[in-house]
Amino acid sequence: MAVTEQLIETLTEKLQPVQPLRKPGRRAALWSAFATLVVAVIGAGWGSRAELAHAVTEAGFFVPLIGSWLTGVTAATAAFHVSLPDRSRRWLWLPLAPVLLWGSGFAYTCFVNWDDLPGSLALLPESACLMTILAVSAGLTVVLLPMLRRVRTLRPGLTAWLGCLAVAGFADTAHLLVHTEQDSLLALTVNLVPAVVLVVFGGLAGRRAV
C-alpha cells in the first residue's frame, strides 16, 4: 500500500495539463471530410466526367460507390468510438449495412457480367488503378493513424481493424470514380481483393501501430 501511495505522489508531483480529446463523432467527421475531399480531388483530376455522368445512372456502379463511401464514414465513426475505453463494442456493427451494400453492388456486377470473361480479362491490364487504391490508402492512413494513436486505446485490434476498413472504403470510392467501367473479374480483383487484404493484414499489423 505504501508503494501505491508513493506511486500517487509520483503521478501527481509533475502533473501536466492535458487536452481532452474531441468527441469521437466530431473527430470521425473531420477525418471523413478530409478523406472525401481527397477522393473528390482524385475523382476530378483523374476521372472522366462524361463516363462518370453515365455510370452513376447504373445501379451496378452507383450502389458500390455509395456503399464504399458509407463504409468509410461509418467504419471511421466506429473506430473513433471503439478506441475509447468507455464506449460500447457494439459500435463495431455500425459499418455492417454499408459493407453489405458495397459488397452486394459488386456481387450484382459479377452476376450480370460473368459470361463476359474475355472482356474482363481485357480490362485487367488497366489494373494500374491498383496504384490509385494504394496511393489513397497510404495518404488516408498517414492522417488517420496519428489520430487513432493519440487515444492510446485499450482495444488496439478492434480499432486498427475498423480504421483499415474505413481506409479501404474511401480508397475504393476513389478507385470507382477514376475507373467507372466495372466488370466481373475487375470488380473482384481490383475492388474487393485489395479491400480484404487491407482490412485483414492492415488490422493485424495496425494492432501494434495504434
Partner: peptide
C-alpha cells in the same frame, strides 16, 4: 493490479470526456 490501473488512468486521462460520467470510464479502464 491497482497500481497498473492507476498508471493506465494516468496515461489515458486525456480520453476522459468531462461532460460524461466518470465511473463508467474508470470501470471500463
Amino acid at each position: 493490479a491497482v497500481q497498473d490501473v492507476l498508471l493506465t488512468v494516468h496515461s489515458i486521462r486525456h480520453t476522459y470526456d468531462p461532460t460524461r460520467p466518470f465511473a463508467p470510464w474508470l470501470t471500463a479502464v
